[in-house]
Write a protein that binds this DNA or RNA. Sequence first.
DNA 1: CGTAACTAGTTAACTGCGTTAACTAACTTG
DNA 2: CAAGTTAGTTAACGCAGTTAACTAGTTACG
Lengths: 197, 197
Amino acid sequence: MDYNRLLRNSHIFASTVREVLERHFLEEASSLPLTISQFYLLKLISNNELYQVGEIAELMGVSNAAASKNIDKLEGLGLVTRTTSEGDRRATLLTLNPKGKRLVQTYEDLKAERLSPVLDQFDPAEIEELSRLLEKFSAEVFRFEGSTGDELENSYCLRCAVYLERDCPVGDILGGCPYNTLYAAHHPEHAVTEGSG
Amino acid sequence: MDYNRLLRNSHIFASTVREVLERHFLEEASSLPLTISQFYLLKLISNNELYQVGEIAELMGVSNAAASKNIDKLEGLGLVTRTTSEGDRRATLLTLNPKGKRLVQTYEDLKAERLSPVLDQFDPAEIEELSRLLEKFSAEVFRFEGSTGDELENSYCLRCAVYLERDCPVGDILGGCPYNTLYAAHHPEHAVTEGSG
DNA sequence: CGTAACTAGTTAACTGCGTTAACTAACTTG
DNA sequence: CAAGTTAGTTAACGCAGTTAACTAGTTACG
C-alpha cells in the first residue's frame, strides 16, 4: 500500500540521515566523544561566530543551562572559546578555535566524499526532484499543523539553523525561523523583508 | 547549491518525521508519558505478539536491560503483559493489553487523519516518486557504507522493524534485517528465501 | 543422570544529557 | 541610585541508556 510504503521509507530515510550522515560520519571524522547536538553547536558557531550562549540555546531548542553545559564540554576539549562581550559584560560570546574549525571541516569533507558516490547513482534531475519533494512535504506538514490551532512558533525545533539558508519555506511557515530572526539581528544591512519567503 | 540544498532538506525532512509524525502525533494521541522508543516497543508487539524480551531488544537496537526497563514501564501503565513461555520457562513473552491496542490504533488513526490533507497536496505520481527516491537514497548510502570495510550488520539499527515489510531493499543491504530473520523464525512456513531481494 | 556451560531476563551501579530553580553579575529604567 | 530585568552558571533532579553481576532455566556430554 502506497501510504504505508511512504511512511516506511520516510522513517528509514530519517533514520539513515540521523544515524549515518549525522552520527556515524561524525564518529569517523573525530575520535572526540561528541554528541550530534554538541557538533551542531560547533557548526552553528562556525557559520556565524560571536553568537551568545542564549542565542545558541534558542537555535538548538534547549535551555540555556543545557547550552551552557555543552559549551563547558566543548571548551574543555579545546574546540571553542568563551569571551565576555565588550558591549554587554553579562553576555558571553563564542568563537571557534582552530581545532574546532578543523573538526568541522574534516566532517564536511568526509561527508562530501562519502556522499559523492551515492549521489552519482542519481540523475541530477532526480536529486532536484528529491530536494523539492522533501521540502514540500515538510512545508505542508507544518502548514497543516499550524491550522490545527496549536501555536506553531516555538513548539517545534528542527535544529534546522545548522543547515538553514535565509529563504527557507519551512522556516517561514514555522513562524519566522529563528535563524532568520537572528541573522537579521546580526546583519541588519540585509535583513530578510517580510513577504519575501 | 544543489548539494547543500539536498542536505538541508534531508535534515529538515528527517527532523519533521521525528518531531511531528513520531513525537508530536504520539503526544496528541495519548497523555501517557511515553518516549518514541517505548511506543515503538508497543508497535512491535502489536505487529507480532509473543515476542521475547531479547527479540524486542534486538529489533530496537538496545541492550536487554534497557528493553526490560522499558517493558517495566509499559507494564506499569497497563499497556502490555509479561507471560512466562511454556516452552522455555526462562523466556518472557509479551502481549498487548486492550489499552495498548487502543493506544496504537489511536495513534495510527490520528496520523492518517493528519497526513491525509498533506498527501492531498501531492500527485499520486509524486508520492510514488518520493517513496522511490527515499528508498533508493537509503539503500545507496548503506551499499557504499558496506564497501568501506566496516561490518555493516549490527553496526546500525534504524529501528525499521516497526515499519518493515518483508521485502525491504534497505534491510537486505544491511545484511539481513533482523525483522526478516525473526519473521522467519516465527513463521517458518513462509520464510523469505535468500536471493529473493 | 548430573555437572558444566550456556542462555533469558532482571537488577544494580553508573553515565550523560536534558530539565527547572536558585543564584550572581550586569544592565536598564524612572 | 534602587527596583526590575536579563545573561549566564550552578545545583538538584529525572530519565533512558550502558555494562556487570546475578538468578533461574536449558542443553550438552562424560
